[in-house]
Simulated assay, not measured.
Amino acid sequence: MARLKVTQKRSEIGTKPQHRETLRSLGLKRVNDIVVKEDRPEIRGMVNAVRHLVTVEEVE
């Protein structure tokens, strides 16, 4: 199954509380943190909600 490499590129300072909670639930704590998650609809939805703060790559 494909996996997503999610990297936080922008700070959560000044963002909505929902966006901060989404970053935490993805496992991102600071700028340049990287997590690898399964490519599932739930994860895609969370990434889509904070797409202005993160970059995403597909990895095997």
Rank of each mutant, 00 (worst) to 15 (best):
V35Y: 01
T22H: 07
K37M: 12
L26Y: 01
I13Q: 09
E21D: 07
I43R: 10
Q8H: 13
G27Q: 14
V6R: 02
I43P: 04
K37N: 09
E42S: 13
V6W: 04
G14A: 03
I13P: 05
R30K: 03
R30Y: 02
I13L: 09
E38S: 13
K29I: 06
D39H: 08
T22Y: 01
D33E: 02
E38K: 11
S25G: 03
H19W: 04
P17H: 11
T7Q: 10
E42Q: 13
K16I: 09
D33N: 10
L28T: 03
R10W: 11
H19R: 02
I13H: 12
T7C: 14
R10K: 15
G14D: 03
S11T: 15
E42F: 04
G27T: 11
G27D: 13
P41M: 10
T22C: 05
Q8M: 14
D33R: 00
Q18M: 10
E12W: 12
E42C: 05
T7R: 12
P17A: 13
E21L: 12
R20G: 05
E38W: 08
V35T: 09
Q8A: 03
G27Y: 11
S25C: 04
K9L: 14
R10A: 15
K9C: 11
I43S: 05
Q8E: 04
L23A: 02
N32Y: 13
E38I: 08
V36K: 14
K9W: 06
S11H: 05
D33A: 05
I43L: 14
R20D: 05
P41D: 12
Q8W: 05
R10I: 11
T15K: 09
P17W: 12
E42P: 00
S11C: 14
K9A: 06
Q18N: 11
I34W: 13
K9Q: 11
T7L: 10
K29R: 07
V31Y: 08
L23S: 00
L26C: 07
R30V: 04
I34Y: 02
H19Y: 08
R30G: 09
V35K: 00
E12G: 14
D39K: 03
K37S: 11
L26G: 01
N32C: 10
L23F: 06
K37E: 13
R30M: 03
E38D: 12
R20M: 13
H19C: 01
K29F: 09
L26P: 04
E21W: 15
L23P: 01
V31P: 08
D33T: 03
